[in-house]
Design a protein around this nucleic acid. Structure first.
Lengths: 253, 253
DNA sequence: ATAGTTGAAATTGAATACAGTTTCAACTAT
DNA sequence: ATAGTTGAAACTGTATTCAATTTCAACTAT
């Protein structure tokens, strides 16, 4: 009920048209001619929002925070966005899209090197938390109150798991499980890290940080635990730098 | 800057004094004399808040929601609480304290039955999510913006892990690990479930719910994954009802 | 060429709207 | 007499609007 007019205002400039010299309007259509300055202002607002989100979080963010940070008047905000939520969705959407791209780039892992694959993935996740804890927190905040955004996040999560889920039947030919069961299993294993990373990087838990832990060590730990849960084996010892304490434990039978 | 006066108002009635007949004020001190009716009104507000939290969540909750639900005037709210946050902290604090008690009661597990112990714990966690998804969500919401409450939650979480962490050195006598390393390991394993349970019960993810999953099955799944990660073994097959699909998978070496 | 003109886009910030919270004087019940 | 309760009025912080101002690429006249 607080968004009757504004989403229209928004559509006017929402189309992403990065070329500042697209002024001539080759097509004779009606519609706004965007000038370089306007495009830059919109981008400035998004950059400002990203900063504010990182520092204050989604719920504490105010329109005035964004415009002040961007160095523009309050009114201009409404020229480019309908409200804080849509701006945030756009900014965080960009953020996850970019993370997803990185994931695709990371293709330097030999076929069949499962541990390498898992480790590469976890390195990426850990580094997201380590370098942008505030934004990672905002991801959760926004997902909590915007079901659509939550779906987007989960889809992205599931997609990053898909390479494994899809290969499970071939990986375990003797196994008897449905797609759904494979998903449950992998979902559980992959979810492992979230709680730990949240409490390390976002909440900075004292007990967890009593001893400093490097990003690489965390990525390795998560990967080892994942590997153990999936294969019921330790990864090759020579691949490990930090977590021999995990693979060293054994119970007497 | 919006809480100058109110925390004082609160202290008046904040002390938890459940006995309705504590009216006589045996001590001659100044202070409010509480009578049964007042105590009941306060409790009514807390019950109302619990309902609203469950249904609307913390951020959507309004003072008027609580007073309407409780059937009292808005003003009365301030007679008993300083603001929504303190009421929520109290209600959710009660909720986790109660969960903790349940955990202590669950002592019917034979010594050395590690799987039984893990399963019992997970049953409790799953059932919390299943029966009070809204409140579980609020736990996260409040923890997100109240570091003190977040600490409380984590402490409760760590405490529930402590029985295991403390026994790790004896359980794995050959192992070489510090307390901190043991904590990291167990934290990771225990964190596993949170993401899955959140997406099943709070977000009701379509992919996960495509096939209906019982509470017992989820508890078993989490327990099996935990057990595998910790012991690098499957739990005894005869203990499992649902998750043979997990223990059945094997990789050819 | 280049000075002059045009008008839509970009920008401003003060005025307004509003959804709540917070107060409090008066009322009620025991 | 006093704890308990009421609900309307005051207040607050922030979102949202909008009339006025500025900017500048494109166009026009000389």
């Amino acid at each position: 009920m607080n968004k009757t007019h504004s989403q229209i205002a928004n559509t006017r400039t929402a189309t992403q048209q990065a070329d500042p010299r697209a002024l001539a309007r080759a097509d004779g259509q009606a519609g706004p001619v965007r000038r370089a300055k306007g495009i830059e202002a919109r981008a400035k607002l998004k950059r400002a929002a990203m900063l504010v989100l990182e520092q204050r979080g989604y719920h504490a963010m105010r329109i005035s925070d964004v415009t002040r940070e961007a160095g523009v008047a309050t009114g201009l905000f409404y020229h480019y966005f309908s409200d804080l939520k849509s701006l945030t969705i756009e900014v965080l959407g960009d953020f996850v899209a970019q993370s997803r791209e990185l994931e695709h780039i990371e293709r330097g892992v030999p076929r069949g090197d499962w541990f390498g694959r898992i480790l590469a993935h976890n390195r990426l996740v850990v580094s997201s938390y380590a370098s942008r804890p505030g934004l990672m927190r905002c991801l959760l905040q926004l997902a909590d109150e915007e079901p659509e955004f939550a779906s987007l996040l989960r889809d992205s999560f599931v997609e990053s798991l898909q390479w494994l889920v899809a290969r499970m039947p071939k990986l375990f030919p003797s196994g008897e499980f449905t797609d759904h069961q494979a998903l449950l299993m992998v979902y559980t294993l992959a979810g492992c890290g979230e709680t730990l990373l949240r409490d390390v990087y976002i909440n900075e838990d004292r007990a967890l940080l009593r001893v400093p832990v490097s990003e690489e060590e965390l990525a390795e730990l998560l990967s080892v635990m994942f590997y153990r849960g999936l294969f019921l084996q330790n990864p090759p010892a020579e691949r490990l730098q930090f977590t021999h304490y995990v693979t060293g434990i054994a119970i007497e039978d």
